[in-house]
Structure formats: structure tokens, C-alpha cells
């Protein structure tokens, strides 16, 4: 496995209730992933700021929160950039979502990742100002740590099988 060319970004906002889940998972998984040769960044950043982090890798895995309202709290949704391009490009209110940034990297020849996946954790409340997670999400952190770790390994393995 060419682990040196994989970057895992854990994203979130530390004071927007469940939006910090990515940051918490990052803290818990950083060493473990780094020991396997992954580059890991825990960031409170979005959009265009991600360009500098994503450049030059074969694979990028982004762990963040999501609220669809369609799945139980803690569900992990997996998206691939090419699957979502048509439905997500230009849809961020800032016009600067993750996939917008990757598209921009392609247009500007800024060496985007060959593949990008988003592991999105379904949460209850990513909008209200609070440093605490919702109780239901807090209760399943150990489960999420294991599950997200496993998913990252799976995604990497599948990517490098090709």
C-alpha cells in the first residue's frame, strides 16, 4: 500500500455542537493513522483553504459531519468526488465547498488528489453554538472511532487495488 500518498483531513468547528465530531475523531485516530504512514491533518477550515493540504496526494479522505435528517445519528455516509460532482459543484453558498476546491485544483493544474472520498458522519445538530456534542452522538464515540478507522482502511485498500 502506498500509504505515503494518502492524506486524511478531519474537519469541524469546535464550538458548533456536533460539528466538532470530525475534530474529536481526528484526535483519537491521528497517531494510529500516522503510524501506518498516513498524513493526517485536523482542521477547522473549509473550501479553498483545503487546496494547500490536498495537493500532491493520490488519495484524500475527508472526515466531517453531515445532517441529512434521513439516517440515524452516527451513520457513516461515503461519498466520492466524481460521484457527486454534478450535484455538488457550485452548490455551496460560498461556491467554495470541498469539491469546488478540487475542481479548481484540476482547472489550475494544482495537482489534486487522484481520488477524494468524504466520510460524513450523520449528526443531530451542527448549527447551535455549544462545545458539547449531542448526548446521542457523545454516547457512540468509541463505536465511531473504530468504524471510521475501518472505513479509512477500506477506502485506501480499494483505491490502491485498482
Amino acid at each position: 500500500m502506498k500509504s505515503k500518498s494518502v492524506i486524511v483531513l478531519f474537519l469541524g468547528n469546535s464550538i458548533l455542537t456536533d460539528d466538532k465530531i470530525g475534530l474529536i475523531l481526528g484526535e483519537k485516530l491521528k497517531k494510529k493513522l500516522e503510524n501506518l504512514g498516513y498524513k493526517v491533518e485536523i482542521l477547522e477550515k473549509t473550501g479553498l483553504e483545503l487546496i494547500d493540504y490536498l495537493s500532491g496526494y493520490d488519495l484524500a479522505v475527508i472526515v466531517d459531519s453531515i445532517k441529512t435528517g434521513k439516517y440515524p445519528t452516527g451513520s457513516i455516509l461515503l461519498f466520492k468526488n466524481t460521484d457527486l460532482e454534478e450535484t455538488t459543484l457550485f452548490k455551496s453558498p460560498h461556491y467554495s465547498g470541498v469539491f469546488d476546491s478540487i475542481k479548481l485544483m484540476e482547472v489550475l493544474n494544482l495537482n489534486p488528489p487522484r481520488e477524494t472520498y468524504v466520510l460524513a458522519i450523520e449528526v443531530e445538530n451542527p448549527y447551535i453554538v455549544s462545545e458539547s456534542l449531542s448526548p446521542n452522538l457523545q454516547a457512540i464515540i468509541p463505536f465511531l472511532v473504530k468504524k471510521v478507522f475501518k472505513k479509512i482502511l477500506e477506502v485506501t485498500e480499494n483505491c490502491f487495488k485498482k
Binding site: 468547528n13 458548533l16 459531519s65 453531515i66 450535484t87 452548490k91 468524504v118
Partner: peptide
């Protein structure tokens, strides 16, 4: 904003 919607809406 704090949008996390990538539902394709």
C-alpha cells in the same frame, strides 16, 4: 453559515 448539505439540493 455552517452548511453541511451535500445532498445535491
Amino acid at each position: 453559515c455552517a452548511t453541511h448539505s451535500i445532498s445535491g439540493s
